[in-house]
Structure formats: C-alpha cells, structure tokens
Amino acid sequence: MIPSVIDYLLQLPEAMHFAKVHELCSDGISSYRMLSDYGSGTFQLIEFENNLLLILIGDYKPKDTFEKITEISEDYMEISQFETDSSSFKIGGRKRNQVDKGIYCYLNTQKKTYTYCEGGKAVRFTKVILSPQYFQTYFKLHDENNARLLSSARDYLLKNPNLPELNFVFQQIRDCQAEGTTLKLYLESKVMELLSLVVKGIEQEQKHISVKLDYKDIRNLKKTITVMKSDLSAYPSGDELARIAGMSPARYQLAFRKHFGTTPYEYLKEMRLNQALLLLKNSDYGIATIAAKVGYHNSGHFAKLFKKAYGLGPREYRNIHGIK
C-alpha cells in the first residue's frame, strides 16, 4: 500500500510510460510526454506548498488498453472533469463503472482501485487532489465537520456532474497560460471558486421536498438520466420519463427535484450545455451543427442559453481558444 497520494502521483507518469520534458518543467510544475512506443500525448503535475493541493492535467492516447492498480493509505478527495468517456474503474470487488464526460468526485477508501483506459482512444481530464488538511486549513473545520463536508460534497457532485459553472471553472484551470507564481495563484483561486460553488450547491439542495425515496426510486430516476444522455438531441416528454421511472408525472417531478436538486428539464439543459462546451473546444463542427447535436435547432436560442450559463457566447468561447 502506498502511504500518500503524493508518493503515488510522483511515480505515476513513469509507470504510465511518460518521460519528463525538463525544458517545460519549473518549480513545482512537472511536464511529461508519453513515449511513442506506448502512445502519444502529455501529462502535467502541479504541486502547491505543503502538498495540501495538487492539480493534474492529462491529454493522451495509449496504443493499448491498460489497467492501473492503486491502493493509497492516505485520505484525500479528488474532483475531476473528464472531457472523454474512454476510462472506467472499480473499487475492490465492486462492479466496473464507466467514467462519463463531466464532473466526477472520489473519496479515497484505502481499498484497491482498478483504473482502465481503452487503447486507441483519447483520455482527457483535469483533476484537483485535495487533502483533508486543505479543508481544515482554509475552511477552519474540525475533523467531524470536515468528514461531513467531504461526504456531502461527494454526493452533491456525483448527482450533478454537468453543472455549467463547475465545468467552466475546470476549463479555466486547464486553459490557463500563465507561468510560475502567477499560474499557481490563479489556479488556487479557481480551486477556491470551485469549492465555494460546491458548498453553495449543498446549502441550496431541496431537502424540504416531502416525497420519500427508496433505493428502487433512485435507481429508476437514474434510468431516466441514462435515457436523456443517450441522445441529447432528443426531446423526451415529462410523461415519457415518468413512465420509465415507474412514477406518476407529478411524483416524478418531485422525486427528481428531491434527489438531483433541480428539474428534469434543467438537468437535461446542463448536460446539453456541457457537451456543447466540449464540442466547441474539441471539434471543428460549425456552431449551428453543435447546437443541433445537443438539441437546439435554433442556434440563436442556443447561443443565448450558452451565454447565460458561461458568461460569453459560443463564438466568443471559440475565439478565446483560437478556433475559427
């Protein structure tokens, strides 16, 4: 068992067949490139003072599918944004889970974790690694409150992987072009913004809704999410989603808000806007085509929704990334 997440991360790039690119490294910032025999792409590790916070940025394509096994004894939280869906994992003897595009949160369980990356497919992620001491230092929490916040944050993020504000903060972390001390100050401010959005969301969760949910209800609610996700250009009706969930339309709306903290329509809109954000950056589709792919056949309406969510229009966002 590896004693700390720092020890694990420092040996991770070489274990995944990356070589350090020394001319791109500086104080606390390590850059790597995948060896050509094993694939292509880059990996960056950014360390902060006291090792309370780490940021990882990966963008690579392995030639062959590989399995990575880890077991870390130290407690830590990982909040990630995945721009691809070519990875999967399992913890201990549990079933294997696909990692979808969007936000994901993991609390270390000190059990063996198996991670899989598919050969020939791109892997693109940004990860923020936080120690419990980070929360104690910056949120002034005692151990008991710390554990409660970490657990609440994990549950909130797992239920809300497509929140536009959170996904946009991750894009800002990934795309920052600053260097040295300025880079670290900017990134740390973005991590604090990320956490403040999570805490705000936890506080606003609609726990006052009186409907009671059991395991079967939650499982059926998740089925409706799978249906929405399977075709973001489709327009499933509330009655259709309620039928899939095995509930009346009225109960479905209440149950969805109780568990996910928002309405089915808003959740679908968040998934669409998150996918649009990634398509605008990572594809050469026209804006009208992207709008249609995520369910908006009126590109003007799509642009208004995008600007309301992210503070700038789709064309402006592309201009920032130098995409015509």
Rank of each mutant, 00 (worst) to 15 (best):
E14Q: 13
L163W: 09
I323P: 08
E67L: 15
L241D: 05
I79L: 12
E144L: 15
G322D: 02
Y134C: 00
Y215P: 05
R154T: 06
C105E: 00
V21S: 08
E47T: 14
E49K: 08
D175H: 11
I55N: 04
P264W: 00
D85G: 13
G313K: 13
T109I: 01
T137V: 12
M247N: 02
A245K: 01
L278G: 07
Q253L: 08
L241A: 06
I173K: 05
Q172L: 09
S189K: 13
G311T: 04
Y106H: 02
A292N: 12
L277Q: 09
L232Y: 04
G58E: 14
G261D: 02
D59A: 08
I202D: 02
I79A: 03
A291R: 10
L195C: 03
G119N: 00
L213V: 07
P264F: 00
G92K: 01
S237E: 07
F66H: 14
Y38A: 06
L157Q: 07
K61N: 09
Q110D: 06
I129W: 03
L107H: 01
L149T: 04
K269A: 13
N50Q: 15
Q136C: 13
A147P: 04
E83L: 14
L279K: 09
E67C: 09
G246R: 03
S88C: 04
K190E: 11
Q171A: 11
K216N: 06
Y317R: 14
M228T: 03
R219V: 10
L279R: 15
K159S: 10
S4R: 00
Q81E: 15
V169Q: 01
Y296L: 10
L305C: 10
N282H: 15
P161W: 00
